[in-house]
């Protein structure tokens, strides 16, 4: 009996040890990938291996422009939803007209970057992971290496650069769509005109409110790319491995985004 118990304890400790090592290993790998991709972005051209702008632009289009319609729809809906909830709450105090401040601050500081981050994680993070994972399985990554094309420079750097540029732009676009959603609902619910809504929003919002959201979005962009590529490069085990890596990268990047959001919001508002 005692032997069984101690055997169980050993196996639990062993499992804990193994998973801790795995987590540290993965974090280390992500940091290496991040530093390497930044190296190629800034210094690649001095080593005659520049990050191709054409590749960055094509990624910017698929990350940003192609995502714009869905970002607009979701952010608009979030704006409407916020307005509904805030008006409901404020009605208890007879202060419905304060809805403008509520929507403006919540959208720009929180919901714009968050909804954009989650959406891009689902769209682009998963695609990155699946693409690199498939290339790994088909030996395309090895093929790049033997052709003298660094896979990080060729695959990761353009994605990172494109995301760091496009996610904040998408976030700003999401802010606007969210405010529009709030304005439309407020107009129908309490009859506040669009121009009055816009003027009030501009009065309330400071540069800092918008910047706080945009700063977060830069961090989210980096999280999505790094989680996606780390999982992609770590694929083993064929098509099933690619599927697992894709799912894992979406779940992990959304989790990291929400947790990072909480932490950064805490520090930015001290």
């Amino acid at each position: 009996m005692t032997e069984t118990t101690s055997g169980f304890v050993y196996s639990v400790i062993e499992k804990l040890g193994r998973s801790t090592v795995k987590v540290i290993e993965e974090a280390g790998y992500t940091i290496v990938l991040l530093s390497e991709s930044l190296f190629w972005i800034f210094l690649g051209r001095f080593y005659k291996q520049p990050v191709r702008l054409s590749s960055v632009f094509s990624q910017m289009i698929s990350v940003g422009i192609a995502a714009a319609p869905i970002v607009f729809i979701l952010s608009f809906a979030i704006g409407v939803m916020l307005a509904i909830q805030i008006i409901y709450n404020l009605r208890m105090f007879g202060a419905e007209s304060q809805v403008v401040a509520g929507v403006a601050l919540s959208v720009t500081r929180e919901f714009g970057p968050l909804i954009t981050g989650i959406l891009v994680a689902g769209r682009t993070g998963s695609a990155l992971s699946a693409r690199i994972g498939t290339m790994q399985v088909n030996q395309e990554i090895d093929a790049l290496r033997v052709m003298g094309i660094n896979p990080v420079r060729y695959l990761v750097s353009p994605a990172l650069l494109a995301m760091l540029i496009m996610v904040p732009i998408l976030t700003f676009f999401s802010d606007m769509a969210g405010l529009l959603g709030g304005a439309v609902y407020t107009f129908f619910e309490i009859g506040l005109a669009f121009d009055a809504y816009a003027i009030q929003s501009m009065d309330i919002l400071t540069i800092n409110d918008v910047m706080q959201g945009l700063q977060k979005s830069v961090l989210f962009a980096a999280i999505i790319v790094m989680v996606g590529v780390t999982n992609g490069f770590s694929v083993v085990g064929g098509a099933e491995g690619v599927g697992r890596a894709t799912t894992r990268s979406v779940v992990l990047s959304i989790s990291y985004i929400v947790i990072a959001d909480m932490v950064i919001t805490y520090f930015l508002n001290r």
Partner: peptide, 21 residues
């Protein structure tokens, strides 16, 4: 960088071809 120069003198045909799909 020397390895990069050397790689220009190496060609590889992988088992599955490994063309970028």
């Amino acid at each position: 960088s020397e390895m990069l120069e050397l790689r220009k003198n190496m060609g590889v045909s992988f088992q599955g071809g490994a063309l970028l799909s």
